[in-house]
Design a protein around this nucleic acid. Structure first.
Length: 420
RNA sequence: GUGGGUAUAGCUCAGUUGGUUAGAGCGUCAGGUUGUGGCCCUGAAGGCCGUGGGUUCGAGUCCCAUUACUCACCCCA
């Protein structure tokens, strides 16, 4: 048997209703805030992610699905959406559009990682990006989109963590302060963190090893080392969030692993879905567009993992079931009746009614069972005598009541079905 | 990439200290007197016991490897 590739998933009919529910909520929330959908390729030039996401990141270094096409070009299945959106803006001259520019997308992404709960190699994101607004009001607005989405989906048990990782102006000083602090405790750090001391001391902050996280507790906080402008930005964001009634906590340990982030970073964390608890994460990226060859244009956004949202919804007791009951099932007996039944259901479908009839030549009893399993609201029993007399019994499957109807009067039949 | 756990029917699982033709419930299909669903009853189909080696007179059961699933690390959504 040929199995699906590792880390991919089949989404079966019984689960699709949940996905559609989330997608429609994502769209309606986006619309409420004035965001427009954007679509872009599933794969891009590999260079886009090297320059956009960052050469030194884990995502780029070891998680990308990269291949060369028949002309020898290096292409990569998108590991995230932000870099592609930025490229799309630049390439289509949208950097000159009316600002702020608000965009959203529902996409699949690919990362070569070892699968576990809430993490797969092909995964699905709802992403939102807001360009051309450097003010903290934009940060607050984008967090409000996320907040609204989570609320609309019925997800409880979440916490919003925010942090500022500063800008190119103040980060070097903070970096040095961190290095000095951890250098004093080098011996106790785990092996990976010893290495990170030189390469990226910020990453030690969210190390999960008990020893490192204990040491990290008293480490200098980014919020204490921000330049005046970044500090003010953070203060303003807090003011907006309070005004909007969005609860949050400052979490100095949020350090995003994508290079493009500046200043505000934030995560919505579900407390009850396992180790991969970030259901939604994002931040500001004021340098990205310029780094990719566009004008200086600030940006901020987030991405939510659909499967993680589903996990969180399940934990919150949200259950979405599809309700597609046939309005009518026609149980037929004999060739003539079966043929006639095909005509009747065809007419009903033209009237927008969901009707079914037998396609496999089952007995009357088996047809009734089928109608029951499909949860048909009505069944119509049709045999030779009914065809002769142009009359048949319409049975209400919920209360078993039967009424006689004329077979050739589709209008009357439709009226009978739409009662209730 | 590093660890732990698991692998028997479509699904959820039994299967004794290794011992003859591998079981149940659910689901599927067909019946339960000649034209009516749900409940109930009967029957049927459906398994290279993940795969490959090994130990043994004998392996679903023990050992090794491998693959997949799963959870955690790492990283992220």
């Amino acid at each position: 048997m040929i199995q699906k590739p590792r880390g991919t998933m089949d989404i079966l009919p019984k689960d699709v209703a949940t996905w559609q529910f989330i997608e429609s909520k994502a769209r309606s929330v986006a619309a409420k805030f004035g965001f427009s959908e954007i679509r872009f390729p599933s794969f891009e030039s590999t260079e886009l992610f090297h320059r956009g996401v960052g050469d030194s990141t884990d995502v780029v270094q070891k998680e990308m699905y990269t291949f060369t096409d028949r002309e020898g070009r290096s292409l990569t299945l998108r590991p995230e959406g932000t870099a592609s959106v930025a490229r799309t803006l630049i390439e289509n001259g949208m950097c000159s559009d009316t600002m702020p520019l608000k965009l959203y997308y529902l996409i699949n992404c690919f990362r070569y990682e070892k699968p576990q709960a809430g993490r797969s190699r092909e995964f699905f994101q709802f992403g939102v990006e807001l360009f051309g607004a450097a003010d903290a009001a934009a940060d607050a607005e984008i967090i409000a989109v996320a907040h609204s989405l989570i609320k609309e989906l019925g997800i409880k048990n979440t916490k919003l963590h925010i942090n500022s990782i500063g800008c190119p102006e103040c980060r070097p000083a903070y970096r040095q302060a961190l290095k000095d602090y951890f250098a004093a405790n080098t011996a106790e750090l785990c092996d990976t963190c010893k290495g990170r001391l030189e390469t990226n001391p910020l990453r030690i902050l969210d190390c999960k090893s008990p020893v490192c996280s204990e040491i990290a507790k008293n480490a200098p906080k980014t919020v204490d080392h921000l330049c005046p402008e970044c500090k003010q930005h953070m203060d303003e964001l807090e003011g907006y969030l309070q005004e909007m009634g969005i609860e949050y906590e400052i979490d100095p340990h949020i350090v995003r692993g994508l290079d493009y982030y500046t200043r505000t970073v934030y995560e919505f964390i579900a407390t009850d879905i396992g180790a991969q608890s970030t259901i939604l994460g994002g931040g500001r990226y004021d340098g990205l567009i310029k780094d990719l060859g566009g004008p200086a244009l600030s940006g901020i956004g987030f991405a939510a993992g659909i499967t993680r949202l589903i996990l969180a919804m399940e934990k919150s007791g949200v259950n979405i079931e599809s309700e597609n009951r046939p309005a009518l099932y026609i149980a037929s007996m004999g060739k003539d009746a079966a043929k006639y039944a095909m005509g009747v259901v065809a007419k009903l479908r033209c009237e927008g009614i969901y009707a079914e009839t037998d396609l496999v030549g089952r007995s009357l009893k088996a047809q009734m069972k089928y109608a029951d399993k499909k949860r048909a609201k009505f069944t119509l029993i049709m045999g030779d005598s009914e065809l002769e007399n142009n009359k048949a019994q319409l049975k209400n499957m919920d209360n078993s009541q039967q009424t006689e109807i004329a077979l050739d009067d589709i209008g009357a039949l439709k009226a009978m079905l739409s009662v209730e």
